[in-house]
């Protein structure tokens, strides 16, 4: 009986914690524009996270891109150039300018969520 009670308490706590995480625990002010949303879809379709992390989630072959837009020494123009023509290890996806801009809009949105 004690075991069943322990597990029930844990399950209730888990459910409560999960619903808090799904709502106010992760509420932020920034909103996503349509362009950023399209950029996110593209990001997923092209599987950019195989090499890049956003907030630490993703593969490690390439750099974390969470703050690529505001970082000193990187910035939007640099990011755009890299996306359009690739780098030493970064593949050249032969993206159209529109696609690169959508990806950039997504990365700018991500960068803007840095502080709550």
């Amino acid at each position: 009986m004690k075991k069943v009670a322990t597990i029930s308490i844990l399950l209730v706590l888990y459910a409560a914690y999960s619903s808090w995480i799904y709502t106010s625990g992760t509420a932020i002010a920034a909103t996503m524009t349509t362009e950023a949303m399209r950029g996110k879809q593209l990001w997923q379709r092209l599987n950019c996270q195989t090499c890049h992390q956003l907030y630490g989630l993703g593969g490690y072959m390439g750099p974390d891109l969470t703050t690529v837009i505001t970082d000193k020494g990187r910035g939007a123009a640099y990011a755009r150039g890299m996306m359009l023509s690739g780098g030493r290890q970064m593949p050249n996806y032969h993206l159209s300018v529109q696609d690169a801009d959508m990806l950039l809009a997504y990365l700018s949105y991500v960068n803007g969520t840095q502080s709550r």
Partner: peptide, 24 residues
């Protein structure tokens, strides 16, 4: 199921929520 919550706009439109729930 939780790993697929991102299919809902409530999760997909908020990167902080999306990433947190993915890690979770």
């Amino acid at each position: 199921v939780e790993a697929n919550l991102w299919l809902l706009p409530h999760f997909n439109n908020n990167i902080v929520r999306d990433i947190t729930v993915q890690w979770k």
